[in-house]
Design a protein around this nucleic acid. Structure first.
Length: 446
RNA sequence: GGAGGGGUGGCAGAGCGGCCGAUUGCACCGGUCUUGAAAACCGGCAAGGGUCACACCUUCGAGGGUUCGAAUCCCUCCCCCUCCGCCA
């Protein structure tokens, strides 16, 4: 078909969900949009694709003739005939150019519509439209009973002088903060702890850039240009601050063709994460739970289609082992279709108990792991080649939080607090923090 | 920041207006030979679209231009390398 455009290298590829797949599974795609609470004009995709193919076909006919002519010309001895051929070639050039413009227009619209269509959903993902339909699939540990009224992490942190929210908002604005004293050590400890766990599992450690180009963001499934974007853009560049290392880790191998034998490729990467939190006004306004910047250790996997379900379970198991190691009670949620977000085929969240959240404690999200199947790889042009099969196929990508530091801090401070306002350091982190307890008098040098 | 040199198939590396989607080497796959292996020899081997299969179309960093025709010429941008300067 195509000219120029469907080449993944060109960065213009229009596959979000595979158009062919949409054509072949029209009803399923529509049903999926409904389940996901997404309004998308799926029929329009088919219509536009039809148009596009037609134009392309016409264009091909002309191109074919063009190629013929340019081969004939050097052989043609007769002057008049030669002139005639050259003239025909000129005409064809214009026709092809005109058709190409049409294709561009159609494809631009197609891409816009395609962008709104979410990934398909795992057959076992609970169907439902709101977070209320999320399903708790396992629960580990019991919420701790306190014989005093537990304070929230903000009160604890301020009294212990380990987080400075006021300075944060003064320097950078609301929802920014300074970590101080033991909170700094805790962040470093959490990072060390997470990397340690993942290294044991054979993941390759990475520290990624904290910025990425717009088309990488879009490839991963973020929409930096949207009105409700979560993404900070850097003025006068095509760069954005990343919202997660998923973006940079996923983008790391764009336009790459792997050998099947090299898969799966497993990374554990650290980055800072920046989120505007647009569309979440008034929610979780206090403290570290919802902030504009935090540090996160993220897992990311490239694999073959038949590996992805298994690896999704692996990522979840690792996340669980991390939070078990921290001694925090949690449950696991199988996210319902309506709450999946665009790229995910299935998503599990870990929510740990946060004793001071809500009225009398609530579970709060601390990790999230998604199987994005080929949704991201298709946009980023990440394929693999197998010796058994001709051609290439798109890899599957998965991501999962190892530790999102700010939220882990919330959980640790609130769960490990004592009646006197001091906080015990989780056993697993003591070797890096270098002390057992954070107490009010415990200055950093103490 | 200054001065040069480059970006071609998995890698290396030719080509510098039509005979080039691309010489060749390595790697890889299949075969012959061998008890087996190595070597040697023969054959295959970029991707995407399209087709039952062919045909056919597109792609030589990206975008634009010149031309009947561009990997090859012109413009813009990106990336990489070398030398000098500066710096955590």
């Amino acid at each position: 078909m195509n000219s120029i455009r469907a080449n993944p290298q060109a960065g213009l590829d229009i596959h979000m969900l595979d158009v062919q797949f949409i054509r072949d599974n029209l009803e399923a795609v529509k049903a999926n949009c409904k389940n996901r609470n997404v309004t998308a004009d799926v029929d329009r995709v088919v219509a536009l694709d039809e148009q596009r193919r037609q134009i392309l076909q016409q264009q091909q006919v002309h191109q074919h003739r063009q190629n013929e002519i340019s081969k004939l010309i050097p052989k043609e001895k007769d002057k008049d005939k030669k002139q005639a051929l050259i003239q025909e070639g000129r005409d064809l050039r214009e026709k092809v150019a005109a058709l190409e413009n049409q294709v561009k227009e159609v494809e631009a619209e197609l891409k816009t519509v395609l962008m709104t269509i979410p990934n398909m959903s795992h057959p076992d993902a609970p169907v439902g439209l709101t977070p209320a339909d999320n399903k708790v699939i396992s629960k580990v540990g019991e919420p701790k009973k306190f014989d005093f009224k537990p304070k929230d992490h903000v009160a604890l942190a301020e009294a212990l002088d380990i987080v400075d929210f006021e300075a944060g908002s003064s320097v950078a604005g609301q929802k920014f903060y300074f970590l101080k004293n033991e909170a700094v050590l805790l962040e470093l400890a959490l990072v060390q702890y997470a990397f340690g766990k993942l290294l044991e599992k054979g993941y390759t450690p990475i520290i990624t850039p904290d910025v990425a180009k717009v088309d990488v963001l879009e490839g991963i499934g973020f929409m930096p240009r949207g009105p409700e974007t979560q993404i900070y853009s850097l003025a006068n560049t095509d760069l954005c601050l990343i919202a997660t290392a998923e973006i940079t880790l996923g983008g790391m191998h764009r336009d790459r063709i792997f050998d099947e034998l090299d898969l799966p490729i497993k990374y554990v990467g650290m980055s800072h994460c920046f989120r505007t939190e647009a569309g979440a006004p008034g929610r979780d306004t206090r403290g570290l739970y919802r902030v504009h910047q935090f540090t996160k250790v993220e897992m990311f996997v490239f694999c073959t289609p038949d590996q992805s379900d298994g690896l999704h379970q692996e990522l979840l198991a690792i996340e669980e082992s991390i939070f078990q190691g921290l001694g925090l009670p949690y449950h696991v949620i199988d996210t319902c279709t309506g709450d999946l977000g665009g790229p995910a085929y299935r998503k599990f969240d870990i929510e740990t108990w946060m004793p001071a959240r809500g009225e009398a404690g609530e579970y709060g999200e601390v990790t999230s792991t998604s199987n994005c199947t080929d949704f991201q790889s298709r946009r980023l042009g990440i394929r693999f080649k197998s010796t058994k099969q001709k051609g290439t196929r798109f890899v599957h990508t998965l991501n999962g939080t190892a530790v999102a530091v700010s939220r882990a801090l919330v959980a640790i401070l609130e769960n490990y607090q004592q009646a006197d306002g001091s906080v015990v350091i989780p056993e697993a982190l003591k070797r890096w923090v270098g002390r057992d307890v954070i107490s009010r008098k415990g200055g950093i040098s103490g």
